[in-house]
């Protein structure tokens, strides 16, 4: 050790048994760590398939007719349901929601008979006024106007009052959108429907584990357990080895 050239430290070229032991352990642990994090996600990426929701399939079947104003009532209803489904999604963009609202309002009005049309137009206008004037959603006028609009509109679309779409329908209707779907909004609807309804799915996302989608459980729960396990293993083995060769910190 008196030779100056002996004073070199390199992780990959250990000179003592202890350093070799440490290097091998670190390589193993980092290998497991890398495969567990990046390997799993590369696998997730490789096997995933863009999978459309049923609402998109239904939308695609009727959209051309809706767009060209040749749709039957059933087709308009299908369109309204699909659009409403997307408008109620958790990550909806404000501009996209406004375009969908235009589509939903127009479709609802198309499905209404003449007496319903008058009542709906008035109910939408009342609800908009009540929304403007309300200080909170507990405001009595607001609640009443919403209730009236809800009752009228869900009957027109044939929704079950207990389903989620029925609960949000009155909030999506706009008096500015009842006449027609604007060209700009047609273009936005075309773009945003697949945007929200195609998802990267695979066996890893569709398998359930402890109630979770498997991949979600893996990243949110299992990886953290693995990290603690790897750390514990390292400390335990280093202590054991140090004990074995009689080294104290």
């Amino acid at each position: 050790m008196n030779n100056e050239n002996n004073y070199h430290i390199s992780f990959f070229k250990p000179t003592t048994d202890r350093a070799k032991y440490n290097r091998n352990m670190v390589i193993w642990l980092i290998g497991i760590w890398t495969v567990a994090i990046f390997g799993f996600h590369i696998l997730l990426r490789v096997i995933e398939k863009p999978t459309p929701e049923p609402q998109l399939i239904a939308f695609n079947e009727v959209w051309e007719n809706v767009k060209s104003n040749n749709a039957s009532n059933d087709e308009i209803k299908t369109f309204a349901n699909s659009a409403l489904h997307v408008a109620g999604k958790v990550f909806i963009n404000t501009e996209h929601r406004a375009a969908l609202d235009n589509g939903i309002s127009w479709a609802t009005m198309q499905l209404a008979d003449s007496s319903q049309k008058v009542a709906l137009t008035s109910a939408i206008a009342n609800f908009e006024t009540a929304t403007e004037n309300a200080q909170a959603i507990t405001d009595a006028n607001y609640i009443q106007a919403k209730k009236e609009l809800g009752a009228l509109s869900i009957a027109v679309l044939g929704l079950n009052p207990d389903e989620v779409l029925a609960k949000i329908l009155s909030l999506e209707l706009r008096s500015s959108g009842i006449e027609k779907i604007t060209d700009e909004n047609i273009s936005i609807i075309e773009t945003c429907m697949p945007h929200y309804t195609i998802h990267n799915r695979s066996v890893l996302t569709d398998t359930k584990f402890l109630g979770f989608p498997f991949h979600y459980f893996y990243s949110a729960v299992f990886l953290l357990i693995l990290f603690i396990g790897l750390c514990w293993l390292y400390c335990y083995r280093v202590d054991k080895y140090n004990e074995k060769i009689g080294i104290a910190d």
């Binding site: 990550f91 989620v164 990267n200 996302t205 979600y216």
Partner: peptide, 16 residues
């Protein structure tokens, strides 16, 4: 209640 929103849990979803 909530409408079906797979974009919340699916990996690198376009919607996000």
């Amino acid at each position: 209640a909530i409408t079906a929103s797979p974009e919340y849990s699916m990996p690198w979803d376009i919607a996000t």
